[in-house]
Design a protein around this nucleic acid. Structure first.
Length: 931
RNA sequence: GGGGAUGUAGCUCAGUUGGUUAGAGCGUUGCGUUGACAUCGCAAAGGUCACAGGUUCGAGUCCUGUCAUUCCCA
């Protein structure tokens, strides 16, 4: 295989992905390398919503999860990653409605089934786009196990889960106050209401209500006449941010401790306009410091007031309809929108002399997560799921260590939320979703006589089953009507890790083999929406935690640190665009190494010429290219040496660079494995980068040009490709295939038995190599320092690259080792081999530039090039720095440090001091020579 | 009101049991292109680790407080 001069991702990616997929390599059954000591790895994709296309957050999720999956697979764990998508109830319905609106159609003019047909069509389109994007990311999911939250199997799981919870009494129906979205016309859960941190600009109105007295017992004039409160002498004044709700007031509450109002308790006031006679009650939840200390209470339109209403057995007067328009109860304001009513009512209050004052006020408004509409608390009939017991089970799982959350700090959030969990409103007044599997006996349609002893409501997994039960109770003429509500989309997501594996069929081979999952990986922003619900429902329905570990990643932010929100499409980045520019491997490498676990990632992307650019992705792309070219070099060497090699596969590390690179390789393997096992992928990725670029390319490859050890050269490259594969799957696979083609049969190390790198074994530490390293690391460090010191001097004195210079090394104990590496030093530091002397102890010559490195001193006779005074200045300042370090070290060694610090640390410090002292002496000698 | 996170080089960020002169990439400066790679090489400059205390032989790392930015919950 001939490799291009530079890595071009487009030549590789689609072709490789298709090949992996067609060969079936993503399936657990296809694995070649299995290590019996590795625990199987099962993970289920967080199903993307079929609302359109994927964004950077999805790309991050996929990059991390594919890394986890490929790493586990190569380590020899039986590995399954299940893909799928989510129907995303409200979000998808809203998108389709908007789309229809553009075509002049409205949902309410259509039949339910016609509308759903439109949604399914959209779902197919979105699903296709998402699938393509997932494939572009290179994810190794088992496509044959793909699921959708509303496909037949998942729907069956949802119906079954509902029925099981219903039968246990954990799901119930109640007429209660819920968060109502007056735009989408549905109830939503607490989690779907968003409140701006500092509130939104609004007003606080202070209004007085006339109090009933002996001389005045209510208004005698029309509202709006300006004489409505005529005759009233006593008043109670309240503050509110929502004056229009006063039409539904059924009491006024004060704090029982509040001296200003105690005498008013048990009196009655009259509601402006409505003229309803309402009591003044004492309730200890009233905050005396808010407003006037007295509050109006509207039990049907406010959560706090609802509680007060229940406590004091007040009437619940609804004054608004589902669109948040005033209803008949609102009298003259009936038919007005809540805000139009507010405006009109305030004007009328003023006219009647009831408005005391208006102040600017920051109002904490709840808004619907999807619609942005101001949420209206509203009493309505809804289905709820009791969370008490499930919440406790979910906290217990973490508390007793059965389930781990990474990073650990999210455990606190976990406990706090679950310990205070409230019942979950699971019904939605939508069309797109799982219709609630409850059927009611229809009195109108049924030709049966009603008896109160017979059940009127059936929860079954299918209509047929419901009818079977109903007919048994009522006879064949009974007619049932299905509940029209659908379930919160998170209800089906909450079953995901087991509904995708065949549950409720507990004998399904996938469920038996792969449940519970090993890992759940997602962004921390849906820890409550999704993760908590899966854990609670998983424990309740399967009796087992759904996964052992939860790994939470951070959020992708824009360059200015803001959330990437759909309301600012100019800031949204399409991952495909970046893939197009830099290649998938670069995008993935960036994403997994950009930050630490759980921390947000600020994109460094900027728009340039209409295209997104990212410096960090460019760096990652360059890395892929570096590896590409290093491999090209190795392949050339193999080709050149072909005839000489025969079948020698022995890894013999004879010289220093070989021993060193093998040691570094094994250190890297150990660290990368350790870090990856701790989910520190960023650090692991950086170590591989450093190893490949700095150690292998910059040093080993260069030195191999002098003395070639092909088996080692190939082995290290092979290992590096394996190490990097989970991070950069495409380029590594492509290069590994090329390497295998040329090297296999000659080197076992190239893994000829594996058809793909993704099925090859992840490198393991070779203890023998680490045991036999001897002084390789220290020697190589000395060698590198020596070469760098000479290069440094050359650079400082601007000696041209082509000029070979003479050099004298006074190397002490390192003389023998450096002599062996004489040629390497000469090549890498551009020293004139004919004028290169290395000895244990060389007296300082005249007219030299000196580079002192502790025990080793390099003298570079650069006659003519060197300005003596400049060299003196350079040496003096370096000497000064050395002296400072010596005194610091001496002070430390004279302190309690020697009594308390561990011996190894003290030893290190002593060796450092000795080196510094030697360095100081050399420089002093040289300075006197130059004077 | 409660809880969390962040504050380290010009920029973006690493730094997990406390232990060399605190690291990387990008950017900057200087030098360098015929042999793997200019998507490159070599060298350099650049940081009182937000601030103030404390614990310790030793603190970017642990504790307390302050300030700034930010997120979640009520």
């Amino acid at each position: 295989m001939e490799l291009a001069k530079a890595y071009n991702p487009k030549d590789v990616e689609a072709r490789r992905y298709d090949w992996w997929d067609k060969q079936g390599f993503f399936k657990p059954e296809a694995q070649r390398y299995l290590d019996p000591n590795e625990k199987q790895f099962v993970i289920t994709i967080p199903p993307p919503n079929v609302t359109g296309t994927l964004h950077m957050g999805h790309a991050l999720t996929l990059a991390i999860e594919d890394l986890m999956t490929r790493y586990a697979r190569m380590k020899g764990a039986r590995t399954l990653w299940v893909p799928g998508t989510d129907h995303a109830g409200i979000a998808t319905q809203a998108i389709v409605e908007k789309k229809l609106e553009k075509a002049g159609k409205r949902r309410r003019d259509m039949s339910r089934s016609d509308f759903l047909e439109e949604v399914w069509e959209w779902k197919d389109y979105s699903h296709k786009v998402i699938t393509q994007q997932c494939k572009a990311m290179g994810i190794s999911v088992d496509w044959q196990r793909e699921a959708f939250t509303m496909d037949d199997d998942r729907s069956h799981a949802v119906m079954t889960a509902f029925k099981q919870l219903y039968d246990k009494g954990l799901i119930y129906r109640a007429n209660r106050m819920v968060n109502w979205d007056p735009v989408q016309l549905t109830g939503v859960s607490d989690l779907e209401v968003e409140v701006a941190e500092d509130g939104e600009p609004g007003f606080l109105w202070t209004i007085r209500y006339p109090i009933e007295t002996n001389r005045w017992d209510g208004p005698r004039h029309e509202w709006g006449s300006g004489r409505w409160a005529e005759g009233a002498t006593e008043w109670i004044t309240v503050s509110t941010t929502r004056p229009e709700t006063l039409l539904g007031d059924t009491c006024i509450a004060v704090n029982p401790e509040d001296d200003r109002y105690v005498m008013r308790v048990a009196c009655h006031a009259y509601v402006p306009c409505a003229a309803r006679r309402i009591p003044i009650v004492a309730d200890k939840h009233v905050d005396p410091s808010f407003g006037t200390g007295a509050v109006k209470v509207t039990p049907a339109h406010d959560f706090n007031d609802y509680e007060i209403g229940v406590r004091h057995q007040l009437p619940f007067v609804e004054v608004m309809d589902e669109h948040a328009r005033m209803n008949a109860e609102a009298g003259p304001y009936a038919g007005l929108d809540r805000y139009a009513c507010r405006k009109q009512l305030v004007a009328d209050l003023e006219k009647e002399g009831l408005l005391v004052k208006v102040e600017d006020y920051m109002v904490r408004l709840g808004r619907g997560q999807r619609s942005g509409a101001v949420i209206e608390p509203r009493i309505s009939m809804q289905w709820f799921c009791n969370m008490q017991g499930m919440g406790k089970a979910a906290t217990d799982a973490v508390r007793d260590g059965r389930m781990k959350i990474v990073p650990e700090r999210f455990e606190r959030t976990w406990f706090h939320w679950l310990d205070n969990i409230r019942d979950w409103c699971i019904s939605r007044q939508l069309w797109w979703g799982h219709q609630i599997p409850v059927w009611y006996v229809s009195p109108e349609l049924s030709a049966v006589s009603h008896e109160p002893s017979r059940p009127t409501q059936y929860c079954e997994v299918s209509e047929a089953a419901a009818y079977a039960k109903a007919i048994a109770d009522w006879g064949p003429d009974v007619r049932l009507l299905r509940d029209t509500d659908v379930l919160d989309t998170w209800f089906s997501s909450g079953l995901w890790p087991f509904s995708t594996l065949g549950w409720p069929d507990v004998n399904h081979p996938d469920f038996k083999a792969y449940y519970p999952n090993a890992m759940l990986e997602t962004g921390y922003d849906i820890i409550f929406f999704w993760v908590a619900r899966m854990v609670m429902l998983g424990i309740e329905l399967t009796g087992n935690i759904p996964f052992d570990t939860v790994y939470l990643h951070g959020l992708i932010r824009t360059a200015d640190g803001k959330k990437m929100s759909k309301s600012r499409p100019d800031k949204m980045i399409d991952p495909l665009e970046l893939i197009d520019t830099y290649g998938t491997d670069a995008v993935r490498y960036f994403l997994v190494t950009a930050g630490a676990p759980g921390n947000d990632i600020k994109m460094d992307a900027r728009k340039e010429g209409g295209k997104w650019r990212s410096d960090r992705m460019e760096g990652a792309r360059n890395f892929a290219n570096k590896l590409w070219n290093a491999t090209r070099f190795v392949l050339t060497k193999i080709e050149n040496e072909k005839l000489k090699i025969e079948n020698s596969s022995a890894l013999q590390a004879t010289n220093l660079p070989d021993r060193w690179i093998l040691t570094r390789l094994n250190q890297t393997i150990a660290d990368v494995r350790r870090l990856s096992d701790e989910y520190q992928y960023g650090e692991a990725g950086k170590l591989i980068y450093e190893f490949i670029w700095s150690d292998y390319c910059d040093w080993y490859l260069e030195m191999s040009k002098l003395s070639l050890n092909l088996p080692v050269l190939v082995h290290v490259l092979d290992s590096a490709l394996r190490l990097l594969h989970p991070f950069m799957p495409y380029v590594t696979e492509e290069l590994w295939q090329a390497l295998k083609e040329v090297a296999s049969g000659k080197w076992q190390v190239a893994g000829g038995e594996y058809p793909s790198l993704m099925l090859a074994a992840y490198p393991k530490v070779d203890e023998a190599v680490l045991g036999a390293q001897g002084s390789a690391l220290a020697d190589m460090a000395l060698l590198q320092e020596t070469i760098r010191a000479i290069r440094n001097v050359r650079s400082e004195y601007k000696v041209p690259l082509e000029k070979r210079i003479p050099a004298i090394l006074s190397a002490g104990a390192a003389a023998a080792m450096l002599s062996e590496q004489r040629e390497a030093i000469a090549m890498l530091a551009r020293v004139d081999a004919a004028a290169f002397h290395i000895a244990e102890n060389v007296p300082a010559p005249d007219q030299c530039v000196t580079a002192a490195l502790g025990e080793i001193t390099a003298y570079l006779p650069l006659a003519g090039l060197v300005d003596v005074s400049a060299e003196r200045a350079r040496l003096s300042s370096e000497l000064e720095m050395t002296i400072n370090l010596i005194s610091r070290s001496e002070t430390l060694l004279a302190s309690d440090f020697v009594k308390r610090a561990p011996p190894a640390v003290i030893e290190k410090e002593r060796a450092k001091l000795a080196e510094l002292i030697a360095k100081r002496e050399q420089m002093q000698i040289q300075l006197t020579k130059l004077s």
